[in-house]
Every structure is written in C-alpha cells, then in structure tokens.
Computed example of a mutant assay.
Amino acid sequence: MDAKALHESQMIMARYLRDPQNNPPPAGVEQRRLKIYEDLIYNNIEGFISSGFPVLRSLYEDIAWHGLVRDFIEGHRCHTPYFLEISQEFLKFLMEDFTLRAVDPPFIAELAHYEWVELALDTAEDEIPDQVAVTDLLTSVPQLSPLAWSLMYRYPVQRIGADCRPQHTGEPVYLVVYRNREDAVCFMEINAVTARLLELIRENSACTASDVLESLAQELGIEPRSLISHGIAQLEEFTELSIVVLAPGP
C-alpha cells in the first residue's frame, strides 16, 4: 500500500471511529475487530471526561450524557494527542462549538470550567514561592501565587448539584480557587472588592501593600484609611492560605 492509499485508509478508519453510525467502516476489517477499536476509543474518552467533570456527569441521565460525549467526539477537532488534556479540549468544545440541547443545563459551560480549574491546578507544575518573613505587612510587596486563580461566574457553580440547578443567572459570583502548600485544591467565595484586590495584586511586581490598598480605595472613591484595617486582615488571611506571597518592600 502506497503512502496516499495508507493515508486514505487511516482517514476512513478515523471517520468511522468518530461517528460509526454515519460513516462506513474501512474495507477488509473484521467487524469484531472494529467493535474493539470503537469501544476502546469511546470508553477511554468518556472515562476521562466523566472523571474530570463528576458534578456535570451527575446531572445527566445516561442517554443524554453519552449523546453529549458523542457530540464532542464527532464534532470537535482536538489539538493535543494527550489523554490528560482531553478535559481541556472538552471544555473548549462546550465554550466554542457546542449548541445547547433541550436537555442541557444553561450553566453547563461555567460548571465545566469550574471543574476544569480544579484539575488544572491539581496537575500544574508551578511552585508557590517561599514565604519571606516581613516585619510590616503594609510595606511588603504582595504577589499572587501562580497557583491561585480569581474567577467570576454568572451562576453559583460552587453550589451546583442534584439539588441546585439554577435556570437563570443572578448576581455575579466571585471565587478564588487555589492550591495550597499541602497540594490541596481549595476554593473561597469572595466579593467584588476582594476580587479586584486580587487582580491588583496579580498585576503587581513592586508596589507595597499600602500602595495597592490605596489604589483600590481610589477606585472605590473612599478614604484609604477606611480600607486599611480590612485590607490588612484580608491580606493576612490570604498569606496564611498561600494565595498571596509577601516579599520585602523597597
């Protein structure tokens, strides 16, 4: 078989494995063998998706869930050959290529993103910098841990489950999801002001905590002194949780 014929044979097999209901199998391959490949491909992909998105999976009856996975396999072109990155490709499918069916919850993409963040942080190779002792928190330089993500959702994704299936968006939900020094992935619900504080810290490289809090107060249109005590307490908590790392000030 020449290279062109081999390529065409591989494409026929790939199309069949993606969508065996609507594509003919390659000629000359025993049906029993085809079934082995078909089940192997589907079961592996479905298994990774189910384990990566357990809450989302729990919201579906089997037929609807397998239909969703089939849509992903048939309609999405993955850009990675690694099984560990299937979850990321499934999320991309839901956010870019997927059209909601009547059976799908409206929060499907946001819930999937929230569950994917936990997996992404759990497998991230980044390390939290060592915490340096500082004598004055306000004169130290706060920096966001590379393993802390400040997120905003339209649905309360952290509460969604069998007994909580919101059908409409509400007030924005702000969360910080982080991996601590014991390698446990945790989340904390925060408010819009705290989320903005974390964003300022994420962008910070040299400003002191006092400067960051003053910038936040200016954005809010309030006196910095009224924000300092709360800001210090919040930074102390974030430091203890390894969400924020302090460096000595200038």
Rank of each mutant, 00 (worst) to 15 (best):
F238C: 02
A64K: 01
L137P: 05
V173M: 10
E199T: 13
T80E: 01
I45D: 01
L216I: 02
L56K: 00
G75R: 11
Q88D: 09
I232Y: 01
A3N: 07
R159Q: 08
Y155S: 02
L235T: 06
A64V: 02
V193E: 12
E125M: 14
T194K: 07
H113Q: 15
N22T: 10
T80L: 12
H76R: 06
G52D: 06
V132I: 14
P106S: 09
H66T: 08
D130E: 15
L68K: 01
D126E: 14
S229R: 10
S145Q: 03
P81T: 06
E8N: 11
E115Q: 15
Q218T: 05
S51A: 14
A5R: 09
V157M: 09
A102M: 11
G161E: 06
A247S: 15
A247F: 14
D126H: 14
L56M: 13
W65F: 10
I86Q: 00
E189R: 14
E214N: 06
T208F: 11
A148V: 00
A195S: 14
I49V: 11
L34I: 10
I73L: 13
Q143T: 15
L151R: 08
A120T: 00
L17Y: 04
D130R: 07
P224N: 05
Y16F: 10
E203R: 15
V134R: 00
R159H: 07
S215R: 15
W149Y: 11
E61R: 07
Y16H: 10
P156A: 07
I108F: 04
V245P: 00
A148S: 15
E125A: 15
L175T: 04
I243H: 07
S242R: 00
L40M: 12
I63A: 06
A112M: 06
N204V: 08
A64C: 03
L197M: 12
V176I: 10
P20S: 03
A102C: 03
S51I: 13
P156N: 04
L220Q: 14
F72Y: 08
C207P: 00
P106M: 14
P248F: 12
V117D: 01
R154S: 14
M11T: 10
H66N: 11
L147Y: 02
R32E: 13
F48W: 03
E30Q: 13
I41G: 02
N23W: 03
L151D: 06
P81Y: 09
L84D: 12
L40N: 09
D71N: 10
S58T: 01
R33W: 08
G28T: 13
E240W: 03
T135A: 15
E125G: 08
N204G: 04
F83I: 15
L144T: 05
A64L: 05
L59T: 00
S51Y: 04
H168A: 12
A233E: 07
Y37T: 02
L137Y: 04
Q131Y: 01
Y37C: 12
V176F: 05
A247H: 14
